[in-house]
Design a protein around this nucleic acid. Structure first.
Lengths: 228, 228
DNA sequence: GTCTATAAAGTGATAGAC
DNA sequence: GTCTATCACTTTATAGAC
C-alpha cells in the first residue's frame, strides 16, 4: 500500500504565493489586499501564508527579496562593466572618446530603465518600487541596499566622467536623479501622461518615442555648459 | 430657559473632517485609514462621516474636490497669463525675445511645481496626486479636469512657442512630461533620492539646489538642436 | 447635527486533524 | 505540508435617542 495522497510540495506553494502576492501588492498595496485573496489566486490555502512566511508581513518582505534577487542578477553585469570602465579610463584613445563612451553607457542604462518603468509588461516591479518609496518600510532597505544604491552610484560616477568641469558630487547626484526622474514619471504619473498624450497604453511604439525623447534630453543636459 | 446645549455647527465639522482626511489619506492611503481615526483627529464623531458625506468614499471625493478648488484658484492667474501671452505674440519686440519669454514662463511654472512636490511642507496634496495616479478612481477626473489638463496644455503650447522648428504636438507633449517628471521625482522617489544625496529632508537650501539644477536642465533641453 | 450602540461583514492568525 | 474551523478583533454603515 502507498501512503496518503495529500500532495506534499513546498517550494511550488511558496513560489505561487510569492507570485500571487507580487501581483496583488503591486496593483493594490499592502493593506488593500487580504491574505485570502492572495491564497485564492495562488491556488493555495490561506493558512499556508502563516506556515511559510510567518504572516502577511513576512510574505511582503519575501516578495521584495525575490524581486531583489531577480533584478540584481540582470543588473550586475551592467554595473560591473561601468565600474570597470571607470576604473580604467586609459582604454580610451582620447578624453573626447572617453566622455562619449560614458554618455553612451548612461543612455543605455536609461533605456533599460525605460523598459522597466514605462512598459506595461513589467508593471508589478515598478509599481512595488514606487509604492515602497511613498511609504518606506524594511522592504525599501532590501531594494536600496540590493541594487538601487549601486545603480545611483555608478550613474553619478558616469556623469562626473562626462562633465570633468567643476561639477561637485552633490550636483552630479542631482543630475542623475533628474535623468532618472524623466523615466520614472512614466510609471508614477502614468494616468496623467496617457491622458495628456492621448495614448491608450504604452506599447512598443510609445516606448520608442519615449526613449528617443529622453536620449535627446539627457544628451543636451549633459553636454550643456551651464553657468550664470 | 434656553435650549439644550449640544453644539449645532455643521460647516466646521465638515471642514475638520476634510482636513483630517486629507492628511490621513495622503500619508497612508484610502484603505489603510479607518473612519474612526479620521474622526478622532478631527475631534468629531465617526457617525458624522456618514451624515455629511454619505460614507468613507464620499469623504474621499470631498477631499479631492476641496483640493481642486484651492489649487485651481492659485493656478488660474498663471495659466490665464500664459494663454494670453500665447494668443498675442505681437507684444514681443522680436522672435528671439518672444522665445526667451516663453522659456522664462515655463521655468517659473516648474519653480512653482518644485515648491509643491519637493517641499516637505506641502506634502499632502502632492501625495494625494501621486496616489491617485497609481490607482486612478473618480477622484482622478476631478484633478485632471480641474487643473492638470489645462496646465499640461499650457506648458505644451509654451514649448512649441520656444521651439518653432519641426516639433510635433506629440513630441512637445513628451518634452513637457519629461520636464515635469524631473520635479515630480522628488516626491515619487523621495526616499531613494534623499538616501543617495545624503539629505535628511528637503528644506529651503535643498529646494534651491533642485530648482537651479532643473532650470539648467530644462534650458539645455529646450535650446538644444537635436536630431541627426 | 451630534451622539451612543450595534449590526453585518470582513480581517490576520492559529490550533489541531490528517 | 496542507487542510478546516474558528478565535479575537476591526471594519463601515446605520438605527435611533437627544
Amino acid at each position: 500500500m502507498n501512503k496518503s495522497p495529500p500532495p506534499p510540495r513546498s517550494a511550488e506553494t511558496r513560489d505561487a504565493l510569492i507570485a500571487s502576492a507580487t501581483h496583488e501588492f503591486a496593483a493594490r498595496g499592502f493593506d488593500s489586499v487580504s491574505t485570502r485573496e492572495i491564497a485564492a489566486r495562488a491556488g493555495a490555502n490561506q493558512a499556508l501564508i502563516g506556515y511559510h512566511f510567518g504572516g502577511k508581513e513576512g510574505l511582503y518582505l519575501a516578495v521584495f527579496e525575490s524581486m531583489r534577487v531577480q533584478i540584481q542578477s540582470r543588473l550586475d553585469p551592467f554595473i560591473a562593466a561601468i565600474e570597470l570602465h571607470l576604473a580604467a579610463p586609459s582604454n580610451a584613445s582620447s578624453i573626447r572618446k572617453y566622455r562619449a563612451d560614458c554618455l553612451e553607457r548612461l543612455l543605455r542604462m536609461l533605456d533599460a530603465m525605460a523598459a522597466l518603468f514605462a512598459d506595461e509588461a513589467s508593471a508589478p516591479w515598478s509599481q512595488l518600487i514606487v509604492r515602497e518609496q511613498q511609504n518606506p518600510s524594511r522592504a525599501f532597505d532590501i531594494l536600496y541596499e540590493g541594487f538601487m544604491g549601486r545603480v545611483l552610484g555608478a550613474l553619478t560616477a558616469l556623469v562626473r566622467g562626462i562633465r570633468p568641469d567643476g561639477l561637485d558630487e552633490a550636483d552630479a547626484g542631482l543630475l542623475v536623479v533628474t535623468c532618472i526622474g524623466q523615466v520614472f514619471a512614466f510609471r508614477t504619473a502614468r494616468a496623467g501622461i496617457l491622458r495628456h498624450l492621448g495614448w491608450r497604453t504604452i506599447g512598443p511604439d510609445q516606448l520608442t518615442a519615449i526613449r528617443r525623447r529622453i536620449r535627446s534630453n539627457v544628451t543636451a543636459m549633459l553636454l550643456a555648459k551651464d553657468g550664470p
